[in-house]
C-alpha cells in the first residue's frame, strides 16, 4: 500500500491505495469520479483520457502511485456549475457524440489539444491528434467539427484578452 496525494480538479486527495492501483481506478473507485471511462483497458481507445500536469494521458496505463504530487483534470472539472466548458458546449452543439461512451476521453483530449496548440488547429491536425481516441459509433465528422469550433472560440477569447 502507498499513501498518495494527488490534486484532482483543484482538490487535493490523500488516499491509501494498493501500489497496483491504476489512475483510472483511483479516480473511479476511490474518488467516485466515474466520468472517466474504461473502454478497452489496453491503452488503445482513449476513453480513459485525463490531463496530468498539462498532458493528456491514458489513465488506464498509469499507476496512481507514480504520479504522487501531480495535478489531474477530469471531465467532471470542466463545467462551471450549470455552464458547460466551451469544448463540452461545442460537442453538444455539433452533436459530437452518439452513444457517448468515448465522449469524456474525446473531450479531455480535445481540451488538452486546444491548449497545447493555443487554438491554432486545422482539420488534418485535429484528426492526427485524435488518433488515440476511438469512437465505435464512428461519429468522427461531428467530433472534428466540434473541436474546430471550440478551437476558434478559444482563439477569439485569447485575441480579446490580448487587446
Amino acid at each position: 500500500m502507498s499513501k498518495v496525494a494527488i490534486t484532482v480538479n483543484g482538490t487535493l486527495h490523500t488516499k491509501e491505495v494498493e501500489d497496483r492501483t491504476l489512475l483510472v481506478q483511483f479516480l473511479r473507485d476511490h474518488l467516485g469520479l466515474t466520468g472517466t471511462h474504461v473502454g478497452c483497458d489496453t491503452t488503445q481507445c482513449g476513453a480513459c483520457t485525463v490531463i496530468v500536469d498539462g498532458k493528456a494521458v491514458k489513465s488506464c496505463t498509469i499507476l496512481a502511485a507514480s504520479i504522487e504530487g501531480a495535478s489531474v483534470s477530469t471531465v467532471e472539472g470542466l463545467a462551471d456549475g450549470e455552464k458547460l466548458h466551451d469544448v463540452q458546449a461545442a460537442f453538444h452543439e455539433h452533436h459530437g457524440l452518439q452513444c457517448g461512451f468515448c465522449t469524456p476521453g474525446m473531450i479531455m483530449a480535445s481540451v488538452n489539444m486546444i491548449e497545447r496548440h493555443d487554438g491554432v488547429l486545422d482539420e488534418a491536425t485535429v484528426r492526427h491528434e485524435l488518433e488515440g481516441n476511438l469512437c465505435r459509433c464512428t461519429g468522427y465528422h461531428n467530433i472534428i467539427k466540434a473541436v474546430l469550433s471550440a478551437a476558434e472560440k478559444h482563439r477569439a477569447a485569447h485575441a480579446v484578452a490580448a487587446e
Binding site: 498532458k55 493528456a56 494521458v57 491514458k58 483530449a109 488538452n112 491528434e129 488515440g132
Partner: peptide, 9 residues
Amino acid sequence: IGDVQVRHV
C-alpha cells in the same frame, strides 16, 4: 510513435 497520449508518457 503510438498516439498523443502514449507519446506523453
